[in-house]
């Protein structure tokens, strides 16, 4: 590796914390709106995974590619998504980036390098790899692509095929596994039989990085190392962070299957509280200052939600119902 990796600074940490906080506050709002019956579709939250997710999104550069997954509200905001567009998709505003045609966690702006996930887990891995291949064919250098996945998603064929194909072409891809102990209700004991998900990296011949997903500092540094390695030509990098999903699979799920021992173990800590504690203990900011940040964010989120609720909804009579870009290819004999 040529260039030296800069250590994570106080200002990096605080910047990342602020995005984590925004993500947490925004998701709390989404949960409230869900309970009030105002959300279109499902709500799947990333509570407890903000440190990891933000560490990915915030350390990518303009021109990089990011394909977030289900629990990446933090990483999305860090990569440039807004509170406004988040609320627009969840509340079904026509002005959202997906215009009501797809929503919530499936949103994205591919032209900005912010890919719109499909539900099928693992599918974004080869697609980000292919995007990086295209960049290489165009002669562009220096960009990386990152995508996130869960412990469950590592069992898909797409994960295997995508990571392997990326490794064969030594593409600058970072695959970030949030090992949050469950895939919906399925515990890791029913998901994989290797000692650690990181063991898979050797099998694919890719870089391996382990992070404590509850510790922002560790996540930032680990992702920084992984992104650096990919950018410097080290090929794909697999990052595995251990943590715990602190909510049900979706807001419909009461998480009754949670093993209480996990909750009390090291992975059960809340990364946001730990980061906050770190800021205060280091004397970087006072508890009052941190509390004020939260209130500020809450005000912004509430005001944005109020604004979005007054926006127009998608109008079926105005939609062009076009799945193809060429008008002459559209079905004219559809039974209706």
């Amino acid at each position: 590796m040529s260039k030296k990796i800069a250590p994570v600074t106080q200002s990096d940490f605080i910047k990342a914390y602020r995005v984590m906080l925004t993500s947490r506050v925004l998701e709390e709002k989404l949960a409230g709106l869900y309970r009030a019956g105002m959300i279109k579709g499902g709500v799947f939250l990333g509570r407890g995974q903000e440190a990891l997710s933000v560490s990915v999104g915030i350390q990518l550069r303009r021109g990089d590619i990011f394909a977030p997954l289900i629990r990446d509200q933090g990483g999305r905001l860090a990569f440039g998504d807004s509170i406004l567009d988040t609320l627009r998709t969840y509340l079904g505003s026509q002005l959202g980036s997906m215009r009501g045609r797809d929503g919530n966690i499936h949103r994205g702006r591919p032209r900005d390098g912010y890919y719109a996930m499909i539900s099928h887990l693992g599918a974004m891995i080869p697609s980000v790899a292919g995007a990086l291949l295209a960049r290489r064919l165009k002669g562009e250098q220096g960009a990386v692509g990152a995508t996130c996945i869960g412990d469950g998603g590592t069992s898909t064929g797409a994960f295997h095929e995508g990571l392997n194909a990326a490794a064969v072409d030594k593409l600058p891809l970072i695959v970030v596994v949030a090992n949050n102990q469950y895939a919906y209700s399925t515990p890791n004991t029913r998901q994989y039989a290797c000692a650690d998900l990181l063991d898979k990296a050797a099998g694919y011949g890719v870089g391996a990085h382990k992070a404590d997903g509850t510790r922002l500092m560790d996540c930032l540094q680990t992702l920084r190392n992984a992104i650096h390695a990919a950018r410097e030509g080290g090929g794909p990098q697999l990052v595995v962070a251990d943590l715990l999903r602190l909510v049900g699979h979706g807001e419909h799920d009461d998480f009754a299957y949670l093993d209480p021992k996990l909750k009390k173990s090291a992975v059960g800590s809340d990364c946001l509280l730990l980061a906050e504690k770190h800021i205060i203990e280091q004397g970087w900011h006072t508890a009052d200052e941190v509390a004020a940040w939260r209130r500020e964010t809450e005000d912004e989120v509430n005001a944005t939600a109020d604004r979005v609720r007054r926006e127009p909804l998608p109008d079926p009579s105005e939609d062009d119902w076009a799945a193809l870009s060429r008008p002459e290819y559209r079905e004219q004999y559809a039974a209706s």
Binding site: P110, Y115, A123, I125, P126, S127, V128, A129, G130, A131, L132, L133, A134, R135, L137, K138, G157, A158, E161, G162, N164, A165, V168
Partner: peptide, 21 residues
């Protein structure tokens, strides 16, 4: 590689980036 799913998946990503695979 012998990976039809990845082959198409990669073509899609490349197409998003302006290629014509």
């Amino acid at each position: 590689p012998l990976s039809e799913d990845a082959i198409v998946g990669m073509a899609i990503g490349a197409a998003i980036e302006g290629a014509r695979p």
